[in-house]
Design a protein around this nucleic acid. Sequence first.
DNA 1: TCCAGATTTTAGCATTGGCTAAACTTTTGT
DNA 2: ACAAAAGTTTAGCCAATGCTAAAATCTGGA
Lengths: 147, 147
Amino acid sequence: MTDSRRPAASRTRPVAFRRIRADHQTELAEDYVELIADLLDERGEARGTDIAKRLGVSNATVVKTLRRLQENRLIHQEPYRSVFLTDVGRKMANEGRRRHKIVERLLVALGVKPEIARIDAEGLEHHVSAHTLDAMKRFLKQGVRKT
Amino acid sequence: MTDSRRPAASRTRPVAFRRIRADHQTELAEDYVELIADLLDERGEARGTDIAKRLGVSNATVVKTLRRLQENRLIHQEPYRSVFLTDVGRKMANEGRRRHKIVERLLVALGVKPEIARIDAEGLEHHVSAHTLDAMKRFLKQGVRKT
DNA sequence: TCCAGATTTTAGCATTGGCTAAACTTTTGT
DNA sequence: ACAAAAGTTTAGCCAATGCTAAAATCTGGA
């Protein structure tokens, strides 16, 4: 077909879009475990209501999502009790925080206002590949260079 | 409550998460119109099947999504015919391309490999605020410097 | 202790975005 | 011109993520 004559961008696209769809699946899970980790650190427990408040969604939605996270062994919880992270969940939370920090620091280094950097980083962190994250880290560490 | 004693990050979160959920709603629409714009530029028409191939989803899914886009006046199409963009759709596509280009160029400037920059930019472009985009533009324009 | 108020979960609904298989058009080759 | 092939749409399914209202459970104060 005309395929070989198409610009490379066209052929890479399905890959990119497939990854985005995959990322979206883990995105919510990551947000939850990070938030739960924060709450546990801050106050030793993480109740559904607190999660709901910070995420800006209803209680019922949180309950339903937590059930799924529990099925995926990221958290455990008994009815009417606080949520806790499994080892897997804790690891995911740490990984998320790490990414978040790097992205946020990068934005600030670029001159983005801190409050905005925090908000944007929340959305961006889930779509940064390992390679890009490394590049960001390198950039932050060693000042700069440019073409 | 304890609210005033919580770190600022906690209080900003609902804002961030709400924006992310909102972004997700427009994300698919933006991807579609950008893709349609590309196809129209490349070959003068954009058929459902081409969109499906590039997005990596089934034909049926594309049909269903296009119906929604048409309801939202972003595209128009007659059955069994090519899709076209409305003025609104065209504007959205241009805006998306602009953001995409800046993000991709920034990643490359940071040392990310071009293929990876392209893929990552596809996921990142929807979560970059106007302010952050400006910062990126400024950074790209004036070479570099660092704290 | 025990019940009233607060908290949490369940029930039930809607929308989005995915799929496959079947039905329907359009196009093409003889 | 028309039948077979190719392309497109419809039908009907599923899972995820959101909601409100009702039911269930927990807890603190009398």
